[in-house]
Simulated scan of single mutants.
Amino acid sequence: MKLQSIVLAALLSTAVGGAMAEDYTAPTVAMSLEDGNYSAGFNATHSTGLFTDTFTFSYSGLPGEAVGFAANFKNKKSDINFFSATLNGKDLGVLNFGSDSKVFFEELPVSGLLTLVIKGEAFGSASYAGTIDVTSAVPEPTTYGMLMGGLGVMAFLARRRKQA
């Protein structure tokens, strides 16, 4: 009787184990600054089943706009379907079509800490990878020149009024 209980428990744990959620929380990544943009890469690998992945990124620039994507390409033994994705609580585009699955976003206003959450299902041992870039709104040198010129004109007019 004990042997039957052990075998039954083993079978049930195997059947349930395939459908269990596999959650992954990556350590916070400091985004690197290159050519005026902050960027970082991310990836995850999953066994068969549901998953929720959380990636956190930090950058020290001014508020800006985020662009990025994540993708998986199906092969004979594995695949991923994305269900949903959010960046700081804002819904992102998700596409599952043919042999590829994608999460994509562009021009999302962001600042400080960024939290990307991706939910989906893996079939076989599957992985995906992606990148996120943040461009800060930094004024061009000509903008500063126009600002200084405008302030000079206003100072000139104010001085002229004072003298009149």
Score class of each variant (00 low, 15 high):
Ser125Arg: 13
Ala26Ser: 13
Leu157Cys: 12
Asn75Tyr: 10
Thr28Ile: 08
Leu12His: 01
Ala122Lys: 04
Leu116His: 05
Ala126Glu: 00
Ala44Thr: 03
Gly17Val: 04
Ser78Gly: 07
Thr52Phe: 01
Val7Lys: 11
Asp91Thr: 11
Leu50Asp: 09
Asn72Leu: 00
Ser60Trp: 05
Lys102Cys: 00
Ser13Ile: 12
Arg160Leu: 14
Leu50Phe: 08
Gly41Glu: 10
Val138Tyr: 09
Ser84Phe: 03
Leu92Gln: 02
Gly93Asn: 14
Asn88Glu: 09
Val138Leu: 13
Met31Thr: 00
Phe83Pro: 00
Leu108Val: 15
Leu33Ile: 06
Ser99His: 09
Gly98Asn: 14
Leu3Glu: 15
Ala21Thr: 11
Ile132Phe: 03
Glu107Gly: 07
Leu87Val: 06
Ala15Gln: 10
Leu11Lys: 09
Leu12Glu: 05
Val16Pro: 02
Ala15Phe: 05
Thr52Trp: 06
Phe156Gly: 07
Ser13Phe: 11
Met148Val: 15
Ala40Thr: 01
Ala122Glu: 02
Glu106Gly: 15
Ser32Thr: 15
Val153Phe: 04
Val7Glu: 11
Ser47Phe: 11
Thr52Ala: 14
Ala155Gly: 06
Tyr128Gly: 01
Gly152Leu: 13
Phe57Tyr: 11
Ala66Tyr: 03
Thr54Met: 03
Ser60Asn: 15
Gly98Lys: 13
Asp53Asn: 10
Gly17Phe: 09
Val110Arg: 01
Pro109Tyr: 08
Thr135Ile: 12
Pro27Trp: 05
Phe97Val: 10
Ser127Arg: 05
Asp79Asn: 14
Ile80Cys: 04
Lys119Asp: 12
Tyr59Ala: 05
Phe82Asn: 05
Tyr144Arg: 07
Ser60Arg: 06
Tyr24Met: 11
Thr54Arg: 12
Leu157Glu: 00
Leu157Tyr: 04
Tyr144Ile: 11
